[in-house]
Simulated scan of single mutants.
Amino acid sequence: MKVIYEDNHIIAINKACGEVVQSDKTGDETVMDKVKEFLKVKYNKPGNVYLGLPHRLDRPTSGLLILAKTSKVLPRLNKLFQSKGAVHKTYWAVVDKRPPKYTDTLEHYLIKNQERNRSYAYNEPKEDAKFASLTYRHVASIDRYHLLEIELHTGRHHQIRVQLRQIKLHIKGDLKYGFPRSNKDKGIHLHARKIEFVHPVKKEPLTIIADPPKDPVWDEFLKMFHAGKFSPVNPV
């Protein structure tokens, strides 16, 4: 966990793979616990530290997580994250094959199986299914892997993982959705790279960016990004 941005109202952290955001059956220390302790020490707070959670990240996923530092700002952040188009989220995903198109918008209907903690995607509406939409863009390739930049239009359970599987792409390390091997850190190569929204108090545009974890594959793609070797947004 690394703090990327902080003001009087919100704090943004770069969550590591494997860190759990909220308490679960494992009983492992949570991101919420770690951030509360960070704030308690930084500001020498004697009592309990308030922290609100307007959105979540899966345990094996790394990247940006926005948290509310006050009870007044949490409802505003909740409203932002629940309002269509108010928050723009960009993810990076490392997959095992080049996608069928350079860029495409995927639309499916997802059903979550609570017992198995996984979602299933369908091309047509079904009872209890939730509409899911994302746009991917193929931005770079190395020997065995390909990097997609993904813009989420909806926020569904395991959405990116299951929608990519529908077009026969598997995220590196993601055993649950079809990749053959796990990563050493038990995480997956899915990273919440960027979040853009209007600050709920300051009313100013805010863009926060987080680099992916240190890892040979991520490092290679990050070098390409800094060298300007990503594919252009609108290729000729």
Rank of each mutant, 00 (worst) to 15 (best):
A86P: 15
L74N: 07
L65Y: 06
L51C: 01
E37R: 08
K45C: 03
K214C: 07
N14D: 14
N8P: 04
Y136P: 10
I11R: 00
A227G: 06
H55I: 09
D185A: 04
D219A: 09
D58T: 02
K2F: 01
G85F: 07
V236S: 05
L134E: 06
H9T: 04
V35H: 03
Y145N: 14
V73I: 14
T30A: 09
R137V: 05
L222V: 14
T30V: 08
R118H: 13
D219M: 04
E107V: 15
T103E: 14
V31M: 03
L51P: 06
V162C: 03
K202V: 05
L74A: 01
K89Y: 06
N113R: 05
D215K: 03
I167G: 08
E124G: 00
A227E: 15
E220Q: 14
I160P: 02
N234L: 07
L57V: 05
A121V: 12
W218R: 10
Y43V: 02
K84S: 14
K203C: 05
L152Y: 04
S62H: 05
P100K: 10
V21I: 07
Q82I: 03
V41K: 14
E124A: 03
H108A: 04
Q114N: 12
A140V: 04
L57A: 03
R116G: 06
P205N: 08
I66V: 15
L169C: 08
K130V: 08
N113H: 11
D219R: 06
A16N: 13
A12G: 10
G63W: 02
Q166T: 13
K223A: 12
L222N: 03
K176L: 15
D185K: 08
D143C: 00
N14F: 00
N14A: 04
G173W: 12
K168A: 11
N123C: 00
P232R: 00
P99Q: 08
G18D: 07
E6C: 00
D33V: 03
P216A: 04
P216Y: 09
K112E: 13
V139Q: 10
I150W: 09
S71T: 09
P212G: 09
K229W: 09
I10T: 08
K223H: 04
I13P: 05
L222R: 02
E107T: 15
C17E: 08
R165H: 08
G155K: 03
I142L: 09
Y145V: 11
V94N: 09
N8G: 13
T207I: 14
V217P: 12
A68V: 05
K202G: 02
L64C: 04
I167K: 07
A192I: 07
F197Q: 12
E107C: 10
E220S: 14
M32Q: 13
P46D: 09
H157K: 05
R161N: 05
G173C: 10
S62I: 02
E115I: 00
K84Q: 15
S182D: 12
R193K: 14
H146T: 11
A227W: 00
V217Y: 10
